[in-house]
Design a protein around this nucleic acid. Structure first.
Length: 721
DNA sequence: ACCGAATCTGTTTTT
DNA sequence: CAGATTCGGT
């Protein structure tokens, strides 16, 4: 291919959906190496860690050991790695903590309480402003000048921003935007560092360029300034992160930014059948901010797109569940199916329907393992051991588990820390700063923190993690607790040890510190694997992925496009999102909407999405597949199977058991159980055996539901009396 | 300091 | 509706 063999200079490849973007990038890198470029001099930046790893694997299998020198990573991981090396040049230590937005939110919340002008309710807005300011590389004072004319609370925003910055700096911490911003600043203030990296990265390759922001563009420009070899791939029609600061301009203006750049277009789609592609093209052509291009496919027409109008959200979930079962009956695999939603909250009914009928699934987008409170709390101890200045970690764990330390005691520490310009932990360590009564209160905690910090350098990551769980007192507290939720929490914490193990297995040289960094930067899709389950995900989470069978659900005005987009009149990004959703499908696409949906405690009746009309194009309205009404009603009253004669059992594949899941033999009539979604229940009846074993469980206020135990066991625990 | 009950509120997407 | 926050009682 032309683009691939064009070695030097700036090159932009506009690559339509399914046109083999990643393949082009990999082929390009292999071609570079073949032409004599040292792999060591090649940088490849992707959007997710998973994509980075996949690319690395592909390069390795194409080039063998030679490929190992190519550096593949995301912007954020790359910056974190660079900053670790030279953090001291910016006044941080190498052990700086990466604050995810959860931490940022906590900081803003705390900071807001001490600022008279600030309204605690506008937290989200402040965070937004801070991110925008950083992405524009503006200090609080500079940002104030920018916004003062049209922002009512510009003063408050500025105060919160600068207090936030102070907190982070004092905690030796950086947020996501800082990772990019501080790297740019490092390059600006330390030309020697920049030159070192320029000499290393002589060929820079960037995937998903349409989703880069200003700082990322700046980084690319700085790094490539010496050699001028930049190869970027992207598609403005798939730009779906403008709300996070991504600039479509980066790709549209690439030729202007990099004079002499060559531009290639890839318009052949190798992924989807013609019917699916027509639908995608029909949707996207309604957008104006784009370089017109039309994807074409050499594949056949394939199945018609299915349009399903449902009466209710439950019926919609039921319909998808049935379709999945039917497809599996035809020989399709769960792993080749995806249910795509606009918002996380819409996944719920699908989870319920799938659980109820024994269809294995995984949800991506939304709450992640590492965001669970108990996990965050446990990691708080690790954070404080690695970075003793991390005040947010201190506040998180100082009274968890309960040590009788309340707000007033903590306030005393905060005051002394401010007065003496030290970290909270340092206040505890310095004799005489606190009243004797407080000092006594904190003594236990201080010992724990000291012991954990001492253990950090002495133990293997795995032993250290175990030690933290014990020493912190979490093990005792949670194991002693009679709240069944706590048992679950403890199991999750134990899962953390597994996570550390897995990480060390993949990176034998890695330290706990490396693990912590990876935790902050993992994304949902990084966890995807090839096990046999249906993917339930937000459209954002499946960018770059493909599935044979795709269901796009909830296609109603106000949902997809969202109410916000509709009222602000800014529907183009929603349309690109729809385009991304449609183009995930290879062979079969089903879209559905419903006339009534239960949301926020009330029933909504929204008209079907404008995207439905657009998809259908000039073709006569495509036949709408009505739900099987009679059957749907019946099924709502009764599970689709009963006893051991489970018609699904023959093709249900059993997912991997969650660690600590109860043995199937533990389920007997009369046993009390807890389901992660349905709550507490009692087993009424058991039928079948082995993997085909099913249980009827009566839930408080929800009636009796029947489960395929081998699958549902992951969501069930036995409640011990 | 801590617990539970009453009350409020917010609901798009995430490296 | 569910999660967070506030409040009042111990």
């Amino acid at each position: 291919m032309l683009a691939v063999n064009d070695r030097d200079g700036a090159i932009l490849v506009i690559a339509g959906a399914g046109s083999g973007k990643t393949r082009v990038l990999t082929a390009r890198i292999c071609a570079l190496v073949d032409s004599g470029v040292y792999p060591y001099h090649i940088l490849a930046i992707t959007f997710t860690n998973k994509a980075a790893n996949e690319m690395k694997d592909r390069i390795l299998s194409a080039l063998g050991g030679d490929g190992a020198g190519v550096w593949t990573s995301t912007f954020h991981s790359m910056c974190a790695r660079m900053l670790r090396q030279d953090a001291d040049r910016l006044g941080y230590t190498k052990d700086f903590t990466i604050y995810t937005d959860l931490e940022s939110e906590r900081v803003v919340k705390r900071v807001t309480e001490n600022i008279r002008e600030a309204d605690p309710k506008r937290r989200a807005s402040y965070l937004n402003h801070i991110s925008r300011a950083k992405t524009a590389a503006l200090s609080p004072a500079e940002y104030f000048e920018e916004i003062k004319e049209f922002t009512e609370d510009a003063k408050a925003v500025t105060l919160v921003y600068s207090a936030y910055e102070k907190e982070l700096k004092e905690s030796n911490a950086m947020d996501f935007d800082d990772l990019l911003l501080k790297t740019v600043q490092l390059f600006e203030t330390c030309p020697d560092v920049l030159e070192r990296w320029q000499n290393r990265f002589r060929y820079i390759n960037v995937d998903e360029f349409q989703d880069t922001n200003r700082l990322q563009l700046k980084l690319v420009k700085m790094l490539s300034a010496k050699w001028g070899n930049v190869f970027v791939v992207g598609d403005e029609d798939q730009s779906i992160y403008s709300w996070r600061g991504a600039e479509i301009r980066n790709i549209l203006d690439f030729p202007a930014e990099f004079p002499g750049a060559k531009v290639y277009k890839l318009e052949q789609n190798y992924r989807s059948t013609k019917n699916i592609l027509d639908a995608a093209n029909n949707v996207i052509k309604h957008n104006s901010a784009r370089n017109a291009k039309t994807l074409w496919s050499a594949l056949g027409r394939g199945s018609e797109v299915r349009y399903c109008e449902m009466r209710s959200d439950r019926e919609e979930a039921d319909n998808v569940m049935r379709s999945v079962a039917a497809l599996v009956a035809e020989g399709e695999n769960y792993r080749d199916m995806a249910v795509l939603v606009r918002a996380n909250s819409l996944t719920r009914l699908f989870e319920e329907a799938f659980t109820l009928h024994g269809i294995p699934y995984k949800v991506f987008g939304g709450f992640r393992f590492f965001e669970r409170k108990e996990i965050k709390d446990t990691l708080g101890y690790v954070r404080l051991a690695i970075n003793p200045s991390d005040n947010d970690a201190f506040l998180r764990i100082v009274n968890y588990p309960r040590r009788g330390i309340g707000a007033s005691a903590v306030a005393e520490v905060a005051m002394m820390a401010a007065r003496h310009g030290t970290s909270y932990l340092e206040v505890l360590k310095t004799p005489g700063l606190l009243t004797p009564a407080s000092e006594k209160k904190f003594a236990k905690f201080l010992t724990v923190a000291d012991n954990i910090a001492a253990a950090l350098g002495e133990m293997s990551p795995e032993d250290f993690m175990q030690f933290v769980i014990k020493e912190s007192g979490l093990e005792n507290t949670l194991k002693m607790s009679d709240d069944p939720e706590d048992r679950n929490r403890y199991e999750n914490i134990e899962g953390l040890v597994d996570a550390v193990n897995n990480f060390i297995e993949d990176n034998p040289e890695a330290t706990v510190s490396d693990f912590m960094q990876s935790v902050a930067l993992v994304s949902d899709t990084d966890e995807m694997d090839d096990k046999n389950y249906v993917t339930i995900a937000t459209v954002h989470a499946v960018k770059g992925l493909e599935f044979d069978n795709v269901f796009i659900v909830g296609l109603e005005e106000g949902i997809f496009p969202t109410a916000n987009a509709v009222s602000s009149g800014d529907v183009e990004e929603e349309r690109r999102l729809m385009y991304v959703a449609v183009t995930r499908a290879k062979r079969r696409l089903t879209v559905s909407w419903t006339r009534s949906r239960f949301r926020f405690g009330r029933t909504e009746n929204n008209p079907k999405s404008r995207f439905i009309y657009e998809m259908q194009g000039d073709k006569p309205p495509v036949r709408t597949f009505a739900p099987v009404q009679a059957a749907a009603q019946k099924s709502a009253a009764k599970p689709a199977f009963s006893g051991s004669r489970n018609p699904l059992a023959s093709f249900v594949s059993v997912p991997q058991r969650r660690a600590g899941a109860p043995a199937l033999s533990e389920f007997k009539p009369g046993v009390k159980v807890r389901h992660t979604r349905f709550g507490n229940g009692v087993v009424r009846d058991i039928a079948g055996e082995g993997d085909g074993m099913t249980a009827s469980i009566e839930f408080d206020g929800l009636g009796i539901k029947r489960f395929a135990l081998a699958i549902a066991v992951n969501s069930l625990s036995i409640v011990k009396e």
